[in-house]
Design a protein around this nucleic acid. Structure first.
Lengths: 222, 222
DNA sequence: TCGTTCTTGACGGATTCCATACGGCCGCGT
DNA sequence: ACGCGGCCGTATGGAATCCGTCAAGAACGA
């Protein structure tokens, strides 16, 4: 069942949305401000977030950024402000759709369906991956056996582990983790790959899961 | 570069959209009716389709169904009709977003970005090619049976495999892989073709899939 | 200030690429 | 039949590049 987190500071609208979504057999949680929205999202892992921009505590765009820092969960934004700059900011921050109040509830539900349909087509990535002796939890950002990774190490490992068996080019890793202007600085990759293998491989000198493809990039082999 | 197919029957709007998209470095093709839209989509394989619902020949929703029959390419719908039932029909038919005319061009572009960002995140589907006993994955850069290729070997194999059955001239291979100034160095081709056959053909001395056409070039036969 | 993380440099060793050489096959003219 | 040249396949050694690792300084936050 699809889990939806609805974030809005108007109790009346919140209630109306909840009733309509529950009637369509969605599982619903609600939040009244940005802080509790981020907290609930981290704990509950909703499949979709409906977010009102006009929250009392945090700016809506910052909430989007906060979510996008660790999850790709689709975000549908609601807003009373219909100016195009608001829409552009929200969409570019990482929102998937933008609905202006007042809106038809049926249209809103159709957009929910469209966005979550698009997402479930892609949703194949598991939250937990086995890497040799260690079990890696992508959501909780933890690894069995008391292994701790630095932020950069996590970033690299996530990219590799999310594409099991596939080659990840040096260019892709560098632009994702450091930015496109670091495309030439391959020594970062060597440095951090050594670190990752030291922490995760049984024999770091002869890696089994974090494989290098000379001249091209690296590959995670389950 | 992202390829966008724009479908609209108003030449003026078509022109405005094309100019704006080209200015943002998209590659753009246009169609004026549903039939040519479906034809161009099948031939050109755009990364995104912008579709006006009010076409002269085919109903817009049927165009969406036609596209969804064989591709998951994102579709952004434009429409003059702002009724919610139109939006619901289009979205449920498989559209990814719905923009009502008149619209702000910047908002339109932001929605294009949002939709195609969501799509490229998911676009990991393997493109597999069968080559005798081996299955070649062009995206993950993997080959069944533990076969590993060097960067140059991959480069050559990709060019051959992407044009199955077609002759690839020596000139074309050399300019693509080594650069146009290496057009005379045909011994590179012999060198690497030997390597590829050694790794991929069952009997490298009598190749079945990587065929040489004397005096012309090479050919991949599935 | 301390501890952690990120950057940067340097060097031996592994991998890949380049360059050359040699042998086989085929068509052609003598 | 024979030699010859053009074209292709294969082998091999050295050059160039790329990679793993250690170590130390810089930047950052508690």
């Amino acid at each position: 069942m699809t889990k939806i987190l609805v974030v809005d500071d108007e109790p009346q609208l919140l209630r109306a949305l909840r009733i309509n979504l529950v009637a369509r057999h969605y599982e619903v949680a609600v939040a009244g401000d940005g802080a509790s929205a981020l907290r609930q999202a981290a704990e509950w892992h909703p499949d979709l977030v409906v977010l009102d921009l006009g929250l009392p505590d945090i700016d809506g765009v910052d909430v989007i950024h906060g979510l996008r820092g660790w999850t790709q969960t689709p975000i549908v934004v609601l807003s009373g402000r219909s100016g195009s700059q608001d829409k552009i900011d929200a969409l570019d921050a990482g929102a998937d759709d933008f609905v202006t109040k007042p809106f038809s509830i049926e249209e809103f539900l159709a957009r929910i369906r469209a966005v979550s349909r698009r997402f479930t087509v892609q949703k194949t990535e598991p939250a937990r991956v086995q890497l040799g002796d260690h079990s890696v939890d992508l959501i909780g950002k933890t690894i069995s056996g008391g292994v701790r990774l630095t932020p950069t190490e996590w970033h690299m490992l996530e990219i590799l582990v999310r594409n099991p068996g596939n080659l990840i080019t040096q260019r892709h890793l560098l632009t994702e983790v450091w930015g496109s202007e670091y495309v030439k600085e391959t020594h970062y990759l060597r440095q951090y790959m050594t670190q990752l293998r030291k922490k995760l491989e049984r024999d770091p000198a002869h890696p089994v899961h974090l494989i290098t493809e000379p001249g091209m990039g690296y590959r995670f082999v389950p």
